[in-house]
């Protein structure tokens, strides 16, 4: 299986945010920096939570921010933001959130490598603790078994 691509620009360790919107915005900004999305996608990820509630908080301490594929997604990608201080999203079972993973996809079947990597990484119940403790982009990449750059196909797609 292809290793997921996670450039330095898609990682922020110890982000300082005031609330859940700031947390999702930080993850969206990381996607924009990496070239995967434009700003509109960040706003759409926030709108998903406004519309449907904090269901994106899928495990204790972990939010999986995402929105539908759209013109604001340039190529598939993911971003990881760890928070200096946890924030509440309003999730009954899984607050407070310490790590936000943002996912951008060009289509329903285009992001299987990222989904599989996420599933593998987080099946371990101690995983969010380990990821929250990461101190560098290299440590975050190691956690996901990710590589810093693609083989060229990511950028040309």
């Amino acid at each position: 299986m292809t290793a997921p691509v996670l450039p330095d620009s898609a990682v922020e360790v110890g982000a300082v945010v005031g609330d859940w919107r700031g947390a999702v915005a930080a993850a969206g900004a990381a996607l924009v920096r990496s070239g995967a999305t434009s700003e509109g996608y960040t706003a759409r990820m926030i709108a998903v939570v406004d519309e449907l509630g904090p269901y994106i908080v899928v495990a204790p301490g972990l939010a999986l921010a995402h929105a539908r594929p759209g013109a604001d997604v340039r190529h598939e990608g993911f971003a990881v933001v760890t928070l200096a201080r946890p924030v509440d999203f309003g999730s009954v079972h899984n607050d407070p959130v310490r790590v936000v993973v943002a996912l951008a996809s060009t289509g329903a079947d285009a992001h299987v490598a990222h989904v599989a990597a996420l599933a593998n990484a987080f099946n371990d119940p101690a995983a969010v603790d380990r990821l929250a403790a990461a101190r560098s982009a290299d440590e975050v990449r190691a956690f996901f078994g990710a590589v810093p750059a693609g083989n060229g196909t990511e950028e040309t797609r």
Binding site: V58, L64, H66, A108, A119
Partner: peptide, 10 residues
């Protein structure tokens, strides 16, 4: 899930 990608795929 809400979007049909991401969380539902997980």
């Amino acid at each position: 899930c809400g979007a049909g990608i991401g969380t539902s795929a997980i």
